[in-house]
Write a protein that binds this DNA or RNA. Structure first.
Lengths: 187, 187
DNA sequence: CTCGGTTGTAAGCAGCTGCTTACAACGCTA
DNA sequence: TAGCGTTGTAAGCAGCTGCTTACAACCGAG
């Protein structure tokens, strides 16, 4: 996790370590339940440096989202965004993108965290809305996004069975089938 | 909100006021973000009484769920539970049952709160699972429950538009239509 | 009236939170 | 090598958290 040997006095590496640690902990616990001491400890860094390099806990949160938030969004064609996001959230391991997980685990936070949450949600919904030509496309997109969030919530946060241990393929099949009535073109 | 005149020294009324205040605040802010001082203040009661009558903040949470949690579950036939819960969460006002709202706003909490969350989820899913005869009925029920939670999350917690201001009837129509492929009998 | 348990109050405890400050160690530049 | 800005450290601040304690006010029973 932390590199004790090798170079010390490396500001860039320290900032990276803080960003990585924060991204992990925010995704796992959300904004409120992650303390600056946790982040500094996970990064193997003195907590005062967090404030030197990022100014505040909220600014660190913004930096994490700015780095990871639009990655999947930009790199996925719209027609695959829904299933790709679903699979990304369901993937048990690997360097998955945990932005949506961060989003839902930080629900209820105020301030800058709330503003950023909203921004992410809007970007996802905007892309999903292009998938249908129904007049209420945005509402349908919100409902699809809501299902994504709900599945992540019940699976990851609540750990409810059988959903928590279900095969991502099975989940994907059921959900994509059901959302056909939501996100489809009539033309 | 609080009755200052009239009887004082009424243990039962004090406990009721604490339960009501706690139910409201837990639904609005979740477990973690609600402080015992908030609850006592909302109830117009000295905070020490909270501990005298309920022992701990977690025990108060359990008491709230025990009082309200199974109300809607017990009073609604299975085939209407999904749309009834959805409508109850979408209802803008009135004495709606806010158990599911409490559930999702308290996500991420540990301890007794987590155990109770799980219990509520299981009861809802068990009932929903009776609606289909598919072999993976429980998984389908979890996915339906997840959609409920996700809609509440995006609508109430994130306040995302257009979902937040959408007509409950429109939402219900779209969601119930989409879940037909999930929760239906083949026989 | 007096007693004694019940109800309500005020103050405070220890622990944690985000954040700040004063200072030491380092290493590049001159 | 001397100086100095950069990087890292340790300690601590004020505010909030759940919870406890010591005590006053009340009221029915004897």
């Amino acid at each position: 996790m932390t590199e004790q040997a090798g170079r010390r006095r490396d500001a860039a590496a320290t900032q990276q370590a803080l960003l990585d640690a924060a991204a992990k902990l925010f995704a796992e616990r959300g904004f409120d339940r992650t303390t600056v001491r946790d982040i500094a400890g996970e990064a193997g860094v003195n907590q005062a440096l967090l404030f030197r390099y990022f100014g505040s806990k909220e600014a660190l949160f913004e930096a994490v989202i700015a780095r990871d938030g639009r990655e999947q969004l930009a790199g996925t064609p719209p027609e695959r965004l829904f299933s790709a996001s679903l699979r990304s959230m369901l993937a048990p391991e690997g360097p998955r993108n945990r932005t949506l997980e961060t989003y839902l685990r930080s629900s209820g936070s105020d301030g800058a965290a709330a503003a950023i949450r909203q921004e992410i949600g809007e970007e996802y919904a905007r892309v999903l809305a292009t998938l249908t030509d129904a007049p209420d496309a945005e509402l349908r997109a919100d409902l699809a996004l809501a299902w994504l969030m709900g599945i992540a919530l019940v699976r990851e946060v609540s750990g409810k069975e059988p959903l928590a241990s279900a095969d991502p393929d099975d989940i994907c099949r059921l959900v994509v089938t059901a959302t056909r009535t939501l996100l489809e073109r009539t033309e």
